[in-house]
Design a protein around this nucleic acid. Sequence first.
DNA 1: GTTGTTTTTGCAAGCGCTTGCGTGAAATTT
DNA 2: AAATTTCACGCAAGCGCTTGCAAAAACAAC
Lengths: 335, 335
Amino acid sequence: MPLTLKDIARMAGVAESTVSRAINNKPGVGEETRKKIMEIVRQYNYQPNQLARGLAIKETRMLALIVADLSPADYQIIKSIEAYANEQGYNCLICNTDNNLQKEEAYLQLLSSRRVDGAVIIGGDLANINIINTALNKNGLMVLVNCLAEELLIPTVLVDNAQGGYLAASHLLQQGLKKIAIVMGSSKEFLESEKLAGYLQALAEYGLEVEERYILETDGSREGGYEGFIRLLEQGDLPEAFFVTRDILAVGLIDAIKMGGYLIPEDFSIVGYGESIISSVINPPLTVVAEPLEELGRYAAKYIIEVINGRNPEEMIKVLEPVLKIGESSVSRTE
Amino acid sequence: MPLTLKDIARMAGVAESTVSRAINNKPGVGEETRKKIMEIVRQYNYQPNQLARGLAIKETRMLALIVADLSPADYQIIKSIEAYANEQGYNCLICNTDNNLQKEEAYLQLLSSRRVDGAVIIGGDLANINIINTALNKNGLMVLVNCLAEELLIPTVLVDNAQGGYLAASHLLQQGLKKIAIVMGSSKEFLESEKLAGYLQALAEYGLEVEERYILETDGSREGGYEGFIRLLEQGDLPEAFFVTRDILAVGLIDAIKMGGYLIPEDFSIVGYGESIISSVINPPLTVVAEPLEELGRYAAKYIIEVINGRNPEEMIKVLEPVLKIGESSVSRTE
DNA sequence: GTTGTTTTTGCAAGCGCTTGCGTGAAATTT
DNA sequence: AAATTTCACGCAAGCGCTTGCAAAAACAAC
């Protein structure tokens, strides 16, 4: 049973209110008494009960981090959010929804039941948009990371994936490659469709026709990548380069390419997405579109805290630019 | 401003205490009234304020997950803890200490200041053992995962890394290989020294002398792995096989091996540690000692909740056995 | 109808903190 | 020296919930 304010007050021979004011650096406490109180606080390592405090001042300094599936990329973001939030005196509840709408709904109720000050929603398919909407009205503040709630005015921070797709495709096009395939997950996912859009735009700028058969939608898995290549192989119409929207897809794709006896980048140039450990470990190390994950997290944390502190959430949208990191999978064969 | 118990009470025309009892399924409420109350609760989607509740009953149903550096392996464990904890009605605060003792200490104070019910300490170098010790006395309950507090009676769940090292080495020895090197991180780290011990034991059982030069301590990085091989190469005394204690080390090692023009497993067999995505993506896919991370997390969550519920924490030590997963990096060349 | 027992319900204190208001003393003004 | 302002401090209510206790209601037994 830890010490309470009352205990400290008794020891210092003052009223609870005085101790409270002293601890929270509020005016109305004499220099003398303040020192005496703080001395006792230090001596006994008194820790105010945050529950009681939260109840009284209606603020918990807790954030909910709601994430769809806790992928390796997500945990980078989380790490960064946690770091920034911690600096600002916030703690983070981690909430993995498992892509399960019910869990998500349940977790959003933390906002009201635990009186969490705000929530950061990371990724996810946004079928949940209505959930979020109702939660928003009833429960409070949130910001979105790497997902988009079209009609809603919610602070959002995301990576310009269209730009990412554009960068990837342009890079390949600049090397004189013309037949560029895209290997992607489901185009129904927001992130994926954006990348596709960027890819298409780049092709358009180079005056190239869109070849439907070079747009390979897959299930996003390693096998998906593998089969994507096989599909092309069977059609007997191979491209010169690939833009792969996920590292894991790239693994499968490269498996298939090697299986076919082809070389990278001699036979196929490849640009991947996401500066993951995987991309760097693959042979050859991938040229990738790198997302500023750490920055993403920092902005998310910054935004939610600003909103909590009363900033108007409208028009808080931050779009971060990805950058191309050249690896060894896309060296032009003309060099 | 959400609804309060008082609001519900007024609406139902009963006292607050009755509503409270109804909601918490406590006896002493008539069937009639209970129904009426629950109906109103549902209708308005009333969420009890957990702060107030926690304050009153001295229980927050929150766990602190204290992790040294949020590595990919850790996040698997965290995911699993979170899932189990959530089932049991607990939420998890994520606390990344960045291997910083001060942050760790600060986070352990969450136990008292936020009245977190318990903490799970994941990994870390255990220089913190005294911190933990004092925190333990003052602040409360915790369990350790994948680290060991020698003298303390703290519930602990860990992987039998000695067994892991033993499995790895034995596997190689069984294939008739005799010159087996170990590439590891610092032997000062608990996890690493255990693996080494297992490796040594296996060698001993096969009646082999320990070759000091085959014990390669590195900084645990990719470069470390690379340089490990180079070191041997310069000595001009190459082993037949490698046991590598970390996936990232294996990446570097394999880089070096390939650079040297050698083949795996034809020239060198390799056994790695940890069934990570990296090990599976490497070429060739590694034979690894796989740790039951999901189980690790589940036990950790189970233990901490049991302790919270009053189980005697003494003698709660769970050692989980790793298993060998055969990949393509260790096929005997005699086959 | 009275008494006794059990169940349902309300009252009020308490969890540990914050904060508006009031009081008396010290400091400032005239 | 009196009147005024300032400041330090304590009192007590309140945040939203739980729970022991007592009152009221319901039921059973005689």
